[in-house]
């Protein structure tokens, strides 16, 4: 990620996934900013987290500017709402020119379309389904 020694990552959504990512990346030495609409969400962050917190709705560009998104190497959109993740991801790409943008999308039907729009998506639904099927196949071949 560029020539910088420590990459800078903005994480939108401080739920279970966002908080886990923030803690991990922070321990690995990344400069992390976490954004959530609710202050209370930051309670999910573990003691290892050493980054910044921004309270606000990431659908507002003002909030993304507060998170210094223009200087980020990567944005991860991990809120519980697909449409928020997809909008934030597109704004990060088009307005803030963030080099790497990843968005969680639950609904596989949406995922496909956003891939055509150039958004890199991660679908827990597809991932879990794949894992279930893989293990089931392993089980079946064993018996």
């Amino acid at each position: 990620m560029g020539n910088k020694t420590s990459p800078s990552v903005v994480i939108v959504g401080c739920g279970r996934l966002g908080a886990l990512l923030a803690g991990e990346l922070s321990r690995e030495g990344a400069r992390v900013v976490v954004v959530d609409r609710f202050e209370a969400a930051f309670a999910q962050l573990d003691a290892g987290f050493s980054g910044f917190r921004v309270t606000g709705d990431a659908v507002e560009q003002r909030v993304l500017r507060l998170a210094n998104l223009d200087r980020a190497d990567c944005l991860m959109a991990t809120t519980e709402k697909d449409t928020v993740n997809l909008m934030v991801a597109q704004v990060a790409k088009t307005v803030f020119a963030v080099p790497r943008v990843l968005a969680r999308v639950y609904d596989p039907a949406r995922e496909e379309m956003y891939r055509t729009l150039g958004v890199e998506t991660i679908s827990p639904t597809s991932l879990s389904a794949g894992e279930f099927l893989r293990r089931f196949a392993g089980e079946a071949s064993r018996s």
């Binding site: 697909d82 449409t83 928020v84 909008m87 379309m113 729009l117």
Partner: peptide, 27 residues
């Protein structure tokens, strides 16, 4: 919500080729 209106317009335009999409924007 802005994000929902954007999603509706993008899905309509990209997936179903609706020629005209109009969104209400709050911010």
């Amino acid at each position: 919500n802005d994000e929902d209106n954007l999603a509706i317009c993008q899905i309509a335009g990209r997936m179903y080729r609706v020629p005209r999409t109009i969104a209400l924007v709050n911010d």
